[in-house]
Structure formats: C-alpha cells, structure tokens
Write a protein that binds this DNA or RNA. Sequence first.
DNA 1: CTCATTTGTATCAACAAATGTTACAAAAAG
DNA 2: CTTTTTGTAACATTTGTTGATACAAATGAG
Lengths: 141, 141
Amino acid sequence: MAANSQFSMAVHVLTMLARSCGRNMKSDYIACSVNTNAVVIRRLLSQLNKAKLVVSQTGASGGTRLARSPVDINLADVYKAVECGEVFALHAKSPSQDCPVGKNIAAVLCHLQREIDKVVGDQLSQHSLADVIEKIEHGWA
Amino acid sequence: MAANSQFSMAVHVLTMLARSCGRNMKSDYIACSVNTNAVVIRRLLSQLNKAKLVVSQTGASGGTRLARSPVDINLADVYKAVECGEVFALHAKSPSQDCPVGKNIAAVLCHLQREIDKVVGDQLSQHSLADVIEKIEHGWA
DNA sequence: CTCATTTGTATCAACAAATGTTACAAAAAG
DNA sequence: CTTTTTGTAACATTTGTTGATACAAATGAG
C-alpha cells in the first residue's frame, strides 16, 4: 500500500462531514465508510485541522465538523492541506556538475515543476466541496 | 518509498542524447552525468525505446540515439513513456458500499483524476525537447 | 572466426513512504 | 469519578524506487 491516496481520502472525509449538517462526526464512524482504521482518519483530520478546514473536539460527544461551508472549500485547498508533494520528483542525487546538461537541468525541471503544480491547483480550484456533494447526491450535472 | 524521479531522469537522458547529434551514446556515459548506475539508465532507456523515442544497438560501438528530432518530442510523450501513474491515487481499499458517499465517491474521483491528467498532459505538451535544450544552452528565453 | 564491448534483463539488497495497529495521555461531558 | 473520544507516539507491514551484481545475446573490430 504505497501509492498516496490521502487526497482521495480527504475528499471522502470532507464529503461525509459536509453531509452531517454541522454535527460532530466520530473518527470511528468515518473510518467505517472509508474502510480503514480510525487512527488513519484522525491523522488525516489532524492535517485538515491545521489547514483550518475542520474543527475537532475531544471528549465524550466530541468529534469533527467542517470549519466552513462546503461552497467555501475547494479541492485545491484540500490538495494543499494533505501536502502530497509534487507531480514528479527531481533527481534523488544531484547530477554531475561537470556536464553542461547535468549542471543546468535542475533549474529547468524545477521551473517546469512549479508550472505543472500551478495548472493542477488551478484546475482543482474549479471544484468546490459543494460541487462534489452535488455530484454524489444527484448525479453528474 | 523513494520519490519517483523517472520523468526527471528521462528528460535529462533525452537531452544528453539530443546533444550527441545522432551518434550512439553509451549507458555508462549517461549514468555518469545523471550520477547513477548504468543499469538504472538502461532500464529507463528500455521504456523510452518501447515508446519509440529512442533506438538502441547492442554490441561493440553500440549505444542509444534519439529516434526522431528533438522538435518532434514533447514532454507529454516523455511523461507517458515513463508511466509514473496518476497525480493522486484512488483509495487503496474500496470504500463501504453501504454508505451513499462511499458508494459514489470513486466515480467522482476517477473523473477528476482524468481531468487533472489531461491538464498536466496539455501543459507538458507545450514544451518540446528542443525547448529544453534551448534553455539549457542559452538560458531562459 | 574469435574476442572485446555493450545492451537487455533477471535477481537481490537497501531504503523510503504509506498504511495498519496498538497503546495511552489529555480533554470534555454527564 | 467514569466514560467517551481525540491526538499522537511507536512499531510492524507492505510496496515502490533505486542500486548493484551477474550473465546471455548481439555486434563490430581485427
């Protein structure tokens, strides 16, 4: 289990929370729908909390709810919150600095990386959490 | 898991080949510039060969050269060739089918995944290998 | 033809990242 | 005080990426 599915899980979790109408939802209940362990969900919620997308309470009748309306949360926010890194990675080891290509390739790739990240972010920001819920509840617009 | 840098390495390798003016280049020589093992390079070249981006020859004075001109190779071709997978992964385990969200989330995410892959591909296809070489040799246009 | 060179690929080890699991302190409600 | 629930640490498991060794097959040079 190595491919990073945190973004997918985060969208799933936030959709669940959005449908609970502001009531606290327990990590155990969410874990059941996502089909994973409650701690995995709590770890994810911890990141969403840091990004101020959700609010949690400890204690009896505690749980988690959205920090703001689903129309004010877009998928770029979620992508950023889970910090999945870049679309492609730069070289693990630095290339040879004696070779003209090795010396300059990193700058070119780094620039490209930012460019790709931007278009991904732009595209994701076109979709709000409310749009996702709409599709799940009423089919494809 | 180590972060996947095959795309970065592939661009590096193809840039090297493009600058060799059609002469065969040895995996050992390329490995030296990329700062890795020759077998890693040969594995990569094997994928680029399957994608018909390069041509290789075994034997003495063998090696690899580009299959076509750098202006006719764009970075989307390279990205496809190395098959690095998607920008984000779907759930590892299938979500609960008893939950309305769990039941329908996969379709929404899958659709989104294709949409993101398309914008990434479109953006990458704006850059030819010749553009990369231009930047490496003569700075940023 | 024979030999040196180089690719292509199998195999295995080393390592890193994501996920699963257990455990327990801290917080909050009743 | 007791119960419930989050937050987080710690560790095992799994899997993908990279590195390294080995060797058959191909091919050019002499």
